[in-house]
Amino acid sequence: MTRVSTFGNYQSALLHLMSAQSRGEEAQNKVNTKKNATDLVGFGRTSETVSALKSSQTRIQGFIDTSKTVADRLASQDLGLDRVADAATAGRLAIANAIAAGRMDGLMAAMETEFKMAQDGLNMKHQGKFVFSGGAVDQQAVVMPAAPAGTDLEKLAALPAAGDVFRNDPLKQKSWLDENVTMDTGFLANEVGQELFDVFRDLQLLHQATPLEGQMTDAQKTALTTLMTRFENAAKAVVDVQSRNGAMQARVETLLESQEGRKISIDTILSGKTDANMAQAVTELEMSQIAIQASAQVISQLRQVSLLNYLS
C-alpha cells in the first residue's frame, strides 16, 4: 500500500519552488547588471582580487583626472606666457621702428597697449582661478594702484619699484601626477614679469624726464637703444619660462598616455573577473523560469490530491 504524506509533498515542492526563484533572481541580476555579483560577497574567493583591482582602478583614474586638469592648466599658462612674451617683443619692435624713423610719434601709446597685454597675460585665469598668483588663486597676480590718476604706465612709474604691483604669494602650484611623480607646475607672476615691468617703468620715467614725442634726439636714441636691448632680454627670459612650461606639458601628456594604457589593462582584467557570461546568464534565467513553472504546477496538483483517492 502506498503512503501519501500531503505535508511532506508540499514541503518538498515549496523548497524546489524557492530554490528555483532564488536561482532565477540571481540569473536576472546577472542579466540586468551584466556582472557576476553586485557586491564583494558575491565574488567569493576572488573578492580580494576584485577589491585590489578596483582599488588600483580608482587610484589610476584619480591620477588621470589630475593629469588632465594639470594639462589644461599648463595650456592656460602657455597662453598667458605667450601674451607676456608678445608684449616684450612688441615693445622692442616699437622702439626699433621709432629709432629707424627718427621720430617717436605714438610710441608711448603703443607701449601702454603692450603693458596692458603683459598684465592680461599675468592675470590669466583657468577655471576661475588665477594661474600666476601662487597660492592666492582668488586674487589677481598684477594689481595697479588706484592712485595717482593717469595711465597704467604713469601709475607704475609712481611706485617705489615695479615689483610693488605683484600680489602673488610665493607658493607654487605642485601636482601629484603618479605614484612617484610630483611636479612644480606653477609659475609666479613676479618671477615671470619682474624684468619686463622694470623696463616699462624705466621707459615711462624716461618719458617723464624728456617726453618721447616728435623728433628723436641723440640722447633719446641712446637711451631707447638700451631699453630696446632690455626688452629683447626680457622677451627671451619669458620664452625660456614658456619652454619649461612646454616641457612639462610634454611630460604630462606622456604620463597621461601611460596611465590610460594601465587603466585599460586593469579594466580588461577586472572585466574578466566580474563581467557575467551573458549567454550563460540568459540560459540560467530561462531554466530557472521553467523550474519555477514546474514547481508551481506540482503545488497546484498537490492541492487536488486527497487520501480519499486511495481509500476503497
Rank of each mutant, 00 (worst) to 15 (best):
I64F: 09
Q280F: 04
D218G: 10
L107N: 01
L93Q: 14
L203M: 09
Q208E: 15
Q173P: 00
D240K: 15
G106A: 01
A71L: 08
T222E: 14
S271A: 05
A94D: 07
S19L: 10
T2I: 14
T254V: 11
Y310K: 09
A90R: 13
A109F: 04
G163P: 05
H126S: 15
D267T: 06
L156P: 03
A109S: 14
V142F: 08
W176F: 12
S5L: 14
F7L: 13
E286N: 15
L122A: 03
G80P: 04
D78M: 03
Q61A: 11
M124A: 14
Q140I: 05
T58I: 11
R230L: 09
A189I: 08
L224A: 06
D275I: 03
N36K: 15
Q259N: 09
V181W: 04
R103V: 09
F231H: 00
W176H: 15
M111N: 02
A85P: 02
M287Q: 14
R251Q: 14
R59A: 13
F130S: 08
I60D: 05
R230N: 13
A85V: 06
G261E: 12
R201T: 01
L196F: 08
V41D: 11
Q297F: 11
L171R: 09
T33V: 07
L255D: 01
L311M: 10
S76H: 02
A52H: 08
F132D: 01
G91H: 03
A27N: 04
A234Y: 01
R45K: 10
T225E: 07
K30Q: 15
M216D: 04
T182G: 08
T210M: 06
D138Q: 11
W176P: 00
S295F: 01
G193T: 10
Q139G: 08
I269H: 07
D275P: 00
L224P: 00
K129W: 04
D169A: 07
E26P: 00
A141G: 10
Q77C: 03
V131T: 04
S271I: 03
F187P: 00
L196S: 02
N32I: 10
Q301N: 13
T185K: 05
A52W: 07
S56L: 05
D267W: 00
M248L: 15
D184K: 09
G102W: 07
I99H: 02
D86R: 13
L205N: 12
T185V: 11
R103N: 14
S300Y: 10
T6G: 07
Q280I: 03
A13V: 02
